[in-house]
Design a protein around this nucleic acid. Structure first.
Length: 249
DNA sequence: TCCCAGGCGATCT
DNA sequence: AGATCGCATGGG
């Protein structure tokens, strides 16, 4: 497998619980943990799906090449990246936190939430469930350093825990209907919804435009938004651009 | 210390 | 519909 680079994936800004450790990288999702240093360490089942191993990234890069020289360079630079199939609930909370925060500080906030509200699984803390965050007060959530977003996280926990927003049912919705559902959560706007869709629902047509991608469009692509022409792999192209821009800043 | 961070909601016009 | 503003807090 050529397109599998743990370091690049861990630093790509899509996942905040994947860090170097003595066995390579430790990745935590929901209440599960895996230590690995190559694709050969990925077990069948949950983690195989998590790492999106059935998608052929090399052929996506190949078929997407030739539109813009800059994007071709980004795809080569980011060769090894994949779009992880992460948990929708974790993505909702994580990307609510992400607004106006650096990637380093997002990771810190997420760990604080896990340590304070998540189940102790021995050598790590599971991500807190909607129920667990529902039982927390807004003030307690705020103690994790999330600032004014505590209200948004509490709102998300309530709407999901009550079943008023059913994340399983969301999986069968169209992209447009899914986005409309996500907009019901206070603190989820266009960009955060696109991140949740791409990283939590594998909606690869969804391409989040943040400050970094704004700079790409403005400074590297002459003010042109390239994503519409990439169709259902626009989100994957977005990830190569984001990675290049944040790594070479 | 200062500036910015994977934006958003509220509040104008 | 589009523009502007305030926002909690952590890193570099």
């Amino acid at each position: 497998m050529e397109d599998f680079d743990l370091k690049k994936i861990a630093e790509s800004g899509q996942v905040f619980r994947m860090k170097p450790c003595s066995g390579g990288y430790r990745v935590i999702s929901r209440d599960k943990s895996l230590v690995l240093n190559s694709v050969d360490d990925v077990p069948v089942g949950y983690w195989h799906n998590y790492f999106d191993l059935d998608r052929d990234y090399a052929s996506i890069r190949k078929s997407a090449s030739g539109h813009y020289q800059f994007i071709d360079e980004c795809m080569e630079f980011g060769r090894g990246l994949r779009i992880l199939r992460q948990d929708p609930w974790e993505m909702i909370v994580t990307f609510i936190i992400s607004q106006r925060r650096s990637m380093a500080s997002i990771a810190t906030c997420v760990e604080h939430l896990c340590e304070k509200f998540g189940t102790n699984a021995g050598d790590f803390f599971a991500f807190p469930t909607p129920s667990q965050l529902c039982q927390a007060s807004e003030a307690e959530i705020r103690e994790c350093g999330v600032g004014y977003r505590a209200e948004y996280i509490k709102c998300a926990a309530e709407i999901v825990n009550s079943g008023e927003l059913d994340l399983d049912k969301c999986k069968s919705l169209s992209d447009a209907d899914l986005k409309a559902e996500l907009f019901r959560i206070k603190g989820v706007g266009e960009k955060v919804a696109n991140c949740i869709m791409l990283f939590g629902f594998s909606r690869t047509a969804s391409a989040p435009i943040d400050v970094w991608i704004d700079r790409v469009i403005k400074n590297d692509l002459g003010g042109h938004n390239p994503f519409p022409e990439y169709g259902d792999v626009a989100g994957i192209i977005q990830q190569y651009l984001f990675f290049y821009k944040t790594q070479t800043k």
